[in-house]
Each structure stands twice: as C-alpha cells, then as structure tokens.
C-alpha cells in the first residue's frame, strides 16, 4: 500500500483532534484531543521514516511518546486540582478572569 495514505490519515487525525480542542468543553476531553494530535504527529513521523528509508522519524516517535506521557502527568494534576476546587472540569466555567 502506498505509504502516503498514512499521511492523509495522520492529517485527518490531527484535524479531528484540533477540532475537538476547539469545540469540546470538558477539560479532560480537550486534553484527550490534544493527545490525539500528538499521536497523529507520531504517525506522520513513522510514515515519513518509512518513506525516506532512515530511522530518525521512528526515534522521534519515541521521544514524542515520552513527552506526551510527561504532559499527561502535569496536565492531569492541574485539571484534577481545578476539578476538586470547582466540582467541574468545564473550560467554560473557568472564567474568573474576563475583561
């Protein structure tokens, strides 16, 4: 199968993730959409790696996974602390600071 198709899939997944970030209200779901975007990046890296015939992209995919894991740790800590003090993880409710 032509590997370019995987690039289209990566672009599609990235777009779905970005759309989700923009339209969903729950911070956890928004965060999952961001993870989807990062995974789309990984798919693109691995596909390009296959197309170019070098391993850089596959190695970068591992780095991305580690970074994504670290981001989950920090992100969930922040979102959980927000949820515990407000009893809501809606990003629309968090509006103390508006002009």
């Amino acid at each position: 199968m032509n590997p370019v198709n995987y690039l289209y899939l990566a672009a599609l997944l990235f777009t779905i993730g970005a759309t989700g970030v923009l339209i969903r209200r729950n911070a956890i779901v928004v965060f999952m959409c961001i993870e989807l975007m990062l995974n789309a990046c990984n798919l693109a890296f691995v596909t390009f790696s296959r197309m170019h015939g070098n391993l850089d992209g596959q190695v970068i995919a591992f780095f991305t996974m580690v970074v994504a894991a670290a981001e989950v740790v920090v992100g969930l800590a922040i979102i959980v602390s927000l949820f515990r003090s407000r009893h809501s993880a809606s990003v629309d409710d968090a509006s103390l600071m508006k002009l």
Partner: peptide, 30 residues
C-alpha cells in the same frame, strides 16, 4: 482559584500549540 484557572488555560493552550509545533516538525522532517 484564579491561579488554577490560569494554569489550566496555559496548559491546554500551550499543549495545543506544542502539538502544532510537533506536526510542523513532522512535515519539515518529511
């Protein structure tokens, strides 16, 4: 409360932006 709200906003938008950065890196690698 304001501080936590700032952190959530910064985190979600910052992670969103870094996902764009990463996809840009993937395309430049391609």
């Amino acid at each position: 409360l304001m501080s936590q709200e700032a952190a959530v906003k910064y985190f979600l938008l910052g992670a969103f932006a870094s996902a764009f950065t990463l996809f840009g890196i993937a395309l430049l690698y391609g």
